[in-house]
Design a protein around this nucleic acid. Structure first.
Lengths: 153, 153
DNA sequence: TCCAGTCTCTTGAACCTTCAATGAAAATGC
DNA sequence: GCATTTTCATTGAAGGTTCAAGAGACTGGA
């Protein structure tokens, strides 16, 4: 029986612990600065930001959830709150009766315009000020490969 | 006035989006497999795992919270639940009346023994099976630098 | 010694996410 | 066509996290 566990060795541990630290602390850090500056969580900000890039600033809920790295249920709850705050509108999809389209409102656009500079500055100070061009490329590539693994699982 | 925003260019975006994807999806993935296998969240598992490595398998709540990448409040709530499940005990610190010591119970040790192999396997399949030795070293180093930035902020 | 300030931890309320159930519409298979 | 299955989205409940407040214990200076 070869069910012996291949434990993490010291080198692997020395990489794993900081990685866990990163994934556990970064969302909180982003939440904190966005909440302070514009009263939004990072996920809420992400929803609006993704929508802004979309054609007609409109997108199906499922696609939006996928691009925002969240569950459809989570997005649905968040969309209800954002809609209540006048930052987003939902409407029936004309071509598929099952789908709902989420669209950015003028209020949503304006909030993004106010929020974006501070958020970019936060992101720069946490990430891009620290790394060289080449390191940034590498970091992105590694993150992409891990996300692919997660999605495959 | 030089308050012009230095937006993220394409290369930076191409790194930032996957990194966000990573930090938003990895905790959920770890939660999911641990919840399925042993009924614990990743944070709960982390609390027990950190305790296991500690001297006397005992540690002050604040130190534990720090090493687990969570707030003291979060740890306090979690410790109450873990204590209720008999996985952990809290006791007064003999040398500092403000502090509380958290210690691993036999039940906690046993649960860890059951949970660890599957968890290591999950981590391997998501991270270490994907990267070379050198890449792993780099990933850890980058994560460490970002965490340092977060803590400095 | 005393007291103001700080540190450690807990608590309850508010809020958010997850999970499972549901309903409606579209696609599939016979 | 019709029944079945799958997809899309919402909902309410359960459970977890955050935030602000507060209790108790230590510290250092007057």
């Amino acid at each position: 029986m070869s069910d012996a566990v291949q434990w993490l060795d010291d080198e692997e541990m020395a990489a794993w612990l900081p990685l866990i630290g990163l994934v556990m602390r970064l969302p909180g850090a982003l939440d904190h600065s966005l909440r302070r500056d514009v009263g939004l969580s990072h996920f809420e900000y992400g929803v609006l930001a993704v929508l802004e890039q979309a054609e007609d600033q409109t997108m199906r809920m499922s696609d939006l959830a996928y691009l925002c790295n969240g569950s459809l249920s989570r997005l649905s709850h968040v969309a209800r709150r954002l809609e209540g705050d006048g930052l987003l509108v939902r409407s029936a999809c004309p071509t598929d009766g099952r789908s709902t389209l989420a669209g950015l409102t003028d209020g949503g656009r304006e909030l993004l315009r106010n929020a974006a500079p501070g958020h970019v500055q936060t992101v720069r100070s946490l990430i891009f000020d620290e790394f060289s061009r080449e390191e940034v490329r590498l970091l992105g590539q590694m993150a992409r490969r891990i996300v692919a693994r997660i999605q495959a699982a």
